[in-house]
Design a protein around this nucleic acid. Structure first.
Lengths: 131, 131
DNA sequence: CAGTTATTACGACTAGATTCGTAATTTAAA
DNA sequence: TTTAAATTACGAATCTAGTCGTAATAACTG
């Protein structure tokens, strides 16, 4: 599988990358220091580890960075919504035979709160699809 | 309580492993030859590659195998439903902040067919009795 | 300016995933 | 029984992810 740098096809983030993206979506643009401080609250990860992953994410175009100042400022290249859609489509195709309804059936179980089910119902109602 | 090899927590299947699991769920128990023939229809993967992955999956307890005959017969250790639930829960926690409704919102878009949306509506309706 | 500190760059190392070639083994056939 | 074919076992090679140490660089302080 060739890695063509010119073909900027959106890469699927790895687990560590997704962790950092979640932080960036929450914080907005941030320096490595800020991101590391944030991630350190829950994990014991070295500063240079976070830096390295952000550099790789930059090569993959998962993040953009502002190099104006000494401390580069990183930001997610794509919106949380866009990335979530991409991830869920990937899972639907690889584990649910392309069936969205099958996925929803598996997603909802006894641990799903009544509030969440209500939210889903409202979403369905708002979809006035013509039959 | 010590870690018992027979009670190892099922690991998350990798992508290649998920491909083989999909085949096993569809075909039922099968030999390496049968599995390879099936996978060869869409990919050009060597016989020993499939064999090796199945052996690793066996070590991980993702599959069970019957060694009675010369050609071992492999079968998925867990049901498709169980594995799907596990995968979707993993994604919900890592990319959707634990919110099932958020996932469902992202899963449904313009490419979702009216039939699928209808299936989801019926699922929601069947849940209504429980509340 | 010199020394300290903060940050980035570079590369090494481990672990897991994926690939497949070759050897060993078993079964079947001639 | 000897040969051929099919299958499993083993291990090497490559690739990606994740980890972090150390060097280089830039900025700040006195």
């Amino acid at each position: 599988m060739a890695t063509d740098k010119s073909a900027v096809k959106p890469t699927k983030p790895t687990e560590a990358e997704l962790t950092l993206l979640n932080i960036l979506w929450q914080m907005g643009p941030a320096t490595v220091r800020q991101i590391h401080d944030h991630v350190s609250a829950t994990q014991k990860t070295g500063y240079t580890t976070v830096l390295k992953i952000l550099q790789i994410m930059h090569e993959k175009a998962l993040v953009i960075r502002d190099e104006t100042n000494r401390a580069h400022v990183y930001a997610a290249a794509n919106s949380e919504m866009h990335t979530q859609s991409s991830l869920i489509k990937d899972l639907i195709s690889k584990a649910f035979g392309g069936s969205t309804s099958k996925l929803v059936m598996r997603a909802i179980d006894e641990s799903t709160s009544a509030e969440e089910i209500d939210d889903i119902r409202q979403l369905l109602n708002s979809l006035e699809k013509e039959f």
